[in-house]
């Protein structure tokens, strides 16, 4: 069936089976492969995107459920000229990524977290990222990056 949604500001319409997962719609039908798949049990958060401004695990949403939604993926964060979003920059400056596989999901989850929670502190960041797994960084620098970005984006305590 026809499913249309806005991804990173661009309107897409694709004809897909109802069983198409949002993550596959984004990656395969639209061709934005920045969003990753790391598990099959909704546990890892690698597939996190923003749906109408809020983080969701796109492996656990059917594409048909996202009809008419506004989706933001990792590709939609940087400026058109390539300037990184403050959160992306913070991840680089704090060495919050190694292999980078968890990173798109981690960044999108962090963005949602920062927007929804003024007054983040270390504890809140750690708990707020409970649904995102990273096997490389040990999280130390991810937490640092999120706090730094929250500060810069003007929403820290």
């Amino acid at each position: 069936m026809k499913v249309s949604m806005k991804i990173n500001g661009v309107e897409y319409e694709r004809d897909v089976e109802p069983r198409r997962l949002l993550v596959h719609y984004i990656r395969e039908d639209v061709g934005l492969t920045g969003t990753n798949v790391g598990c099959d049990t909704s546990s890892c958060g690698a597939c996190t995107v923003l749906m109408d401004g809020k983080s969701v695990k796109s492996c656990t949403v059917l594409a048909v459920q996202a009809e008419g939604a506004e989706i933001t993926t990792i590709e939609g964060l940087a400026e058109p000229d390539g300037t990184l979003h403050p959160l992306q920059r913070a991840f680089q400056e704090c060495h919050g990524l190694q292999c980078g596989y968890c990173t798109p999901g981690m960044v999108m989850a962090s963005l949602s977290l920062i927007k929804e929670n003024p007054g983040l502190d270390e504890r809140k960041v750690r708990e707020g990222l409970e649904g995102n797994l990273c096997r490389c960084t040990g999280y130390h620098n991810i937490v640092k990056a999120v706090l730094q970005a929250a500060d810069e984006m003007g929403v820290k305590a």
Partner: peptide, 13 residues
Amino acid sequence: DPALLAGESKFVA
């Protein structure tokens, strides 16, 4: 980092 952070890096999948 920049390519990884922008979702530009390509993994096999």
